[in-house]
């Protein structure tokens, strides 16, 4: 590799890593050291911030809540998106292009527009402050995303496979589960990853729709503001813990990540 290229990439990654390093660094310091001045490595190394999070239910329940609604959302999104994506990739039907476009507009819709009506809709049906409410709300952008990604992958599977399976006497559901789904397993994995991720990083809707019982970790983090000022160490530790799920699974989808972000169109 040329030295210039190496320099550009290294500098860019350094720029990306510096703020994360600083957060990590802070999360291992007691507040006195954070406020006492700049230290590049924790002098008084402590895991107290993490201990606080893992022992206080009002903290760790935030993670549980987030994981619950994210998981629900991923399952719902994939369950409805799989047959729909198959239909879009295999058949032409009345209004298919308009429908596909309409789905896209929902992925692009600003959550801010939906915050207030969602609040009222879910309050009126008695789902306010439940996990399922957030999971359903996040379907707004995750279902279209899943349909688009899956359709992109399904188009790559030759149609002859479908026809051969019919000749062999497979019924459609059996063909879909036994033959088709294994063929697009990577696509399903990528779609699941992106549903998980976009639900995990979203805050505006999940915060609007919850108060106590289903409060996501992202909203819990605002709790660190107290009478004695901000608890920076705790805030940093909570932040670090929210980065971990994404960082753990990104390795598996590294080759498809561009496809996912481009809604299945690369």
């Amino acid at each position: 590799m040329k030295i210039g290229n190496f320099l550009v990439v290294t500098l860019y990654i350094l720029f990306l890593m510096l703020p994360i390093y600083w957060l990590l660094n802070m999360s291992f310091k007691p507040n006195s050291e954070i406020l006492g001045g700049i230290t590049f490595f924790p002098r008084n190394f402590t895991v107290q911030n993490y201990v606080t999070i893992f022992t206080d239910p009002s903290w760790y329940m935030g993670y549980v809540n987030s994981i619950l609604y994210v998981a629900m959302n991923t399952v719902i999104s994939l369950a409805v998106a799989l047959p729909a994506a198959y239909a879009f990739s295999r058949y032409s039907f009345l209004g298919d292009k308009h429908l596909f476009f309409w789905l896209l507009t929902n992925r692009m819709a600003p959550p801010a527009v939906f915050a207030l009506p969602f609040f009222q809709l879910y309050s009126s049906v008695g789902l306010f402050d439940t996990h399922i409410a957030v999971a359903l709300a996040h379907c707004l952008f995750n279902v279209p995303l899943a349909v688009w990604i899956l359709e992109g992958f399904m188009r790559g599977v030759p149609k002859e496979i479908d026809e051969t399976a019919y000749i062999d006497g497979y019924s459609w559901p059996r063909f879909f589960v036994k033959i088709f789904m294994p063929l697009i397993a990577s696509g399903i994995g990528v779609a699941a990853f992106f549903c998980f991720m976009f639900s995990w990083v979203e805050l505006l809707l999940s915060r609007t729709l919850t108060t106590v019982d289903a409060k996501p970790i992202a909203a819990t983090m605002t709790r660190t503001v107290s009478a004695s000022g901000l608890d920076w160490g705790l805030l940093a530790a909570a932040g670090v813990l929210t980065i971990i799920p994404g960082a753990l699974v990104v390795f598996f989808v590294r080759n498809y990540i561009a496809k996912g972000f481009a809604l299945g169109r690369v």
């Binding site: 957060l23 990083v201 980065i243 960082a247 990104v250």
Partner: peptide, 21 residues
Amino acid sequence: VLMALPLLIPWNVVGTIWQVF
């Protein structure tokens, strides 16, 4: 993988990171 990392951070944590930074 390293470059994708900022994309996977919850948006309010991104805000927090820069607020502190």
